[in-house]
Simulated assay, not measured.
Amino acid sequence: TNTIMNALNQLLASYKQYSLCTTSVDTSKALIAEEFNGVSKLLLSLADETKDLVTFNEDLEKKIIEELNYINVLSTEVYVYQKNDKMVWCTITLRTSDLDNPKLLDVLTKNFGTKMCQKICEPSNVHGLSVATFAPAPKYDCIFGTSGTQKSGNDVSGDSYSFIRLNNNKILLSVCDGMGSGEDAQKISDTTISLIENFYRADFDDETILSSVNKLLAMQMTENYSTLDICVIDLQNALGDFVKVGAPESLIKHADGIDIVEGTGALPIGILEDIKPSIVKKTLCANDIVILASDGILDAFDGAEVLQNYVNNLKINNPQELSNMILEKATALSNGDPKDDMTVLCARIFVNV
């Protein structure tokens, strides 16, 4: 009997391993298909852009070179790209040491009639020179602050956060809470945040990004679950996309009150093969503050409404100070003994003048 049971157990273990491998292969195929679909969308977008007529304004290029040389900013080449008679961007080859000259942006702003900002800067093939690309500055800009602490008794936090500027005048804010706490949770959340950042930088759409990251995490043999709270702010029109996957509520602090952004109760990322994220669009105003927090913060306050009342009574516009105050209050409510990792990320948008 023992021999038969041992044989059955071995067969069962072999079948289980085969089933896992088969599932992993199927998931890999689906992931590759989604990636190709995302790439095809990008290629179609690039194809549409090539249809636009791009011209150069040589007269303006010569004028900019002369004015830059007048303020002792040595520029060897200036290219002004226009699309449909509107300036799109300007590329200048200049001394690396002149990049910090405040008069550089003043000259460009005067000639283009709109505030300019530096987008990209790369070293030139010539030593001591750099190639900088400038474009019209978006209507709004954003600053942020963050605070966090680990669960009592742990050395590291299982929460991760991100604040990055994307190429299309957008800001990505995200808070990720890895399953559990400690080093394992930290690895999960760091991996999730890194994937999210790279996909957004590649300009994939929300659906492709979340589905791909979910499948990548689900392919692992270990339990890689994490909640994900994302806010993408368009600095051109102050529109915010709040994307939640198992994440708690977020807050938007206005001058005259506070809004709560709720999710739809979606499961954390990495559990199921298909996910249904909650996506909410909000119109923001100048000096609004977006507050993303992990569930450790919300649990300490005993819910979003208590946190809402607390933040509403704070007359603070500095996002870093606001983050510190929220964390300090959450820690105090936990009697100095956090029961979970706590992370809060605050970002304030303002008119870019």
Rank of each mutant, 00 (worst) to 15 (best):
K16L: 15
Q17T: 14
S19N: 14
S19G: 11
L20V: 13
L20F: 14
L20Q: 15
C21M: 12
T23I: 14
T23P: 04
T27V: 13
S28A: 15
S28K: 05
A30K: 13
I32R: 09
A33D: 14
E34I: 10
E34Q: 12
F36K: 06
F36Q: 08
N37H: 09
N37M: 07
G38N: 02
V39C: 05
L42Q: 07
L43T: 09
L46N: 03
A47Y: 03
D48Y: 03
E49C: 03
E49H: 02
E49Q: 11
T50C: 04
K51S: 05
K51E: 09
D52T: 07
L53A: 04
V54A: 05
F56I: 10
N57C: 08
E58F: 08
E58W: 02
D59N: 12
D59Y: 02
D59R: 11
D59A: 13
E61S: 12
I65C: 06
I65Y: 00
E67F: 07
V73R: 00
V73K: 00
L74Q: 03
S75A: 13
Y79Q: 10
V80A: 01
Y81K: 10
Y81G: 01
K83H: 03
N84E: 12
D85W: 01
W89P: 00
W89S: 11
T93R: 11
L94Q: 08
R95N: 07
T96A: 11
T96Q: 11
S97W: 01
D98M: 06
D100W: 03
D100F: 11
P102T: 04
L105M: 09
D106W: 02
K110P: 07
K110Y: 06
T114H: 02
K115L: 13
K119R: 09
K119Y: 08
C121F: 00
C121P: 01
E122Q: 08
P123F: 02
S124N: 09
V126F: 04
G128C: 05
S130M: 06
V131K: 04
V131D: 04
V131Y: 02
F134I: 00
F134Q: 00
A135C: 09
P136V: 11
A137D: 01
D141G: 08
C142V: 10
I143S: 04
I143V: 12
T146V: 11
G148E: 00
T149R: 09
Q150K: 13
K151E: 15
K151I: 15
K151D: 15
